[in-house]
Nucleic acid binder design. Structure first.
Lengths: 187, 187
DNA sequence: GTCTATAGGGCGATAGAC
DNA sequence: GTCTATCGCCCTATAGAC
């Protein structure tokens, strides 16, 4: 048994989510989060670049899952199909989380705070850029790749939003597929 | 001739843009901007909610132009056509600015600073939501409206990005139209 | 206009794991 | 010994309160 309790990151994320829900994001100081997680303020900032990032540390893994799925897609799959495979992988990852209440609570906090929305949008845009690059690496035309990545990303966002706000439990993968189909039907 | 020099907002925006380019966004303090614009720090924060917002005060006018164009679109125009009309109006507004170098310099600063990108993405997302609402008000199905708004918004972003980074001068309206066509061709 | 709390970065010290 | 996580105290600028 070491000097420190394990999983400081996880504890900080949990503490932050709880405090951001109640009493609220603006009302919560980093010192509050650190205290609840049993670390110092300084430790918080070594793990997370700022007060918002604590809710987004999972996005790296999600991005990896997305890119892996795109790489695994059939070589002859058109850009939108490959991008959709990536979004499907993201949906699978989100639905198979240990704590199924996490995404919903997290989404509620983000929806209530513009400055957290900004960070979420940046993560999404970063992901879309990575997807576009992965598609061009597969040989797609850059413009077409960018459009496919944006369409798939937007479909995912709309689906995710419905999934986290719906009263009854929905299947995220189905929502994503439905959204992609709507973009395909734009013409 | 009044007690104050006129157009404090414009001077602050100009000063901020220049300083954000050189020595850079992070290196520039609000006090620096205020001093260059000949106002106090307090005045800056009365005009702009934070250090980022000084580059985004024009977005309100842009949004109004977009929504007006959507409202003016033929009643029987499908959602994507109406949304595209809104994006075209935005392109017109941007191309007919008094200082044609402004958008390019502004875009360069934003591209170099993630925290400014976040704000830009939030403005874009807010606009997309407003567009989606305007489309549903016209009688469109909410899901279809959201998809059309996202597609038009993404087309605009991709076009705007090319427009601000291209070596030779391009026609923003044409780029936007081309982008919308690409989304239409996704199926 | 003045005052103040908080975000967030820099740096050195410390204490464990290996 | 090295490497890495934690801590403590310095600081400034932001942004909100008074």
């Amino acid at each position: 048994m070491g000097r420190w309790e394990p999983d400081a990151r996880g504890r900080m994320t949990q503490a932050a989510l709880e405090l951001y829900l109640e009493p609220g994001y603006e009302q919560t100081t980093v010192a509050d989060i650190a205290a609840r997680a049993g670390v110092t303020e300084r430790t918080f900032f070594r793990h997370f670049s700022d007060k918002r990032e604590v809710l987004f540390s999972g996005s790296t893994l999600l991005q990896e899952a997305v890119l892996a799925a795109i790489a695994a897609a059939p070589e002859d799959a058109p850009p939108l199909v490959a991008a959709a495979a990536g979004m499907d992988a993201a949906a699978v990852a989100l639905q198979s989380q240990p704590d199924p209440t996490f995404p919903r609570r997290r989404a509620a906090v983000i929806a209530a705070n513009p400055s957290l929305q900004e960070r979420e949008l940046l993560k999404m845009a970063t992901l879309a850029n990575a997807v576009a690059e992965a598609l061009t690496d597969r040989g797609a035309d850059p413009e077409e790749a960018a459009v496919a990545a944006e369409a798939a990303g937007a479909a995912f966002r709309l689906a995710f939003d419905r999934w986290t706000t719906s009263e009854e439990p929905l299947d995220l993968r189905a929502l994503v597929a439905e959204g992609v189909a709507r973009f395909r039907a734009l013409g």
